[in-house]
Design a binder for these strands. Structure first.
Lengths: 184, 184
DNA sequence: GGTGGTGATGTCAGTTTCTGACATGGCGCG
DNA sequence: CGCGCCATGTCAGAAACTGACATCACCACC
């Protein structure tokens, strides 16, 4: 693999997020993002099909991992709802690795319909992946979907709680919400 | 109000949908859509902020109507879930007025992430509007949200059933799904 | 019936987004 | 050392959008 300065994709993602947080999404041009990352505008479009995609890191392997994790948890005897929560915890662990990202995203994404829509689409993909894994493990289709939606709902509320108090550990908040949900 | 050939906005919406259904979304240019509607490309952008918006008719008054309808149904004694269903029925009535639209949309929107995302965003706005109306009528916040989500879920399944058999009356299918849901 | 205002549209130039084609340069492998 | 791979650079161009100004139908008012 030839390389000049490795990690161009990551630098582009970070530049897009930070610049948009500072000056707004439509005010920051792709040329700016590329310059901040030390590459050309053309290189940006080799990493991302379009401008909005720079705000949503590739998640194909995440989706696969969610599916297998949910399925394995279910194989170990968990009901679908708990199995989906286990998969969600895994996802929360990934997100918690760089906590600044969700904070910046929360400032940029909701203000831009194109970004907000793509965000919802990704969430639906995650629900679909978890449900798929559960179904592959023998769960009922609608039960699996409901379990996925419940996990997503827990994730959203956990994120909201955490954003109001970012000093807490994100995964702890997720655990808290998850246990509160299973108590219902 | 000065006017040349009235209904430019509607013609643009229809042209965008039919052309995209024929040749695909990215293959149809805004200039094409405008020409098919008998206007200039510039006029297109006076009616819609961007290309994707042409596929989603303005819904600000629909959202307000959903909120008041849900609230009034609740004031008449319906529990939040049924009140949200009543508002949904109203929406179904609007959609049923031109049944070709949802059929074409179903062919175009899911294939294009930008459109699919915007679609989810609109659905969330509808849920928010119904929940808002219910809360204004004194309902609990989470109960109102759940009622809205339940109505949306019923809408989605009703649409799916109807698309498999478009000769049926859409509002009938909605009623059927609604009663099945309330039977749970 | 003229006359002026209003609002939607046309025209045009310019920026930004995105794409295809080709050139370049570092890095691994024989 | 030479060869090829692959990410990147360069350049041209189409398509998406925007601002500024002109135009033209319709409507109100006198």
């Amino acid at each position: 693999m030839g390389r000049w300065e490795p990690g161009a994709r990551g630098r582009l993602e970070r530049a897009a997020l930070t610049l948009s947080a500072e000056q707004g999404y439509e005010a920051t041009t792709v040329a700016q993002i590329a310059a901040a990352a030390g590459v050309t505008e053309r290189t940006f479009y080799r990493h991302f099909p379009d401008k909005v995609d720079a705000f949503f890191p590739d998640n194909t392997d995440l989706l696969a991992t969610l599916a297998t994790t949910a399925r394995e948890a279910q194989d170990d005897g968990s009901p679908p709802r708990d199995a989906a929560m286990t998969a969600l915890r895994l996802f929360a662990g990934y997100v918690a690795e760089e906590p600044e990202r969700p904070l910046l995203s929360a400032r940029v994404i909701p203000a831009v319909p194109a970004l907000a829509g793509r965000d919802l689409l990704r969430q639906q993909q995650m629900v679909g992946a978890m449900a798929e894994g559960l179904v592959a493990g023998g769960a009922d289709a609608v039960a699996a979907r409901l379990a996925g939606e419940a996990a997503l709902s827990a994730w959203r509320t956990a994120l909201t709680i955490w954003r109001a108090d970012p000093d807490r550990v994100l995964t702890d908040v997720v655990d808290e919400v998850a246990s509160a949900a299973s108590a219902l």
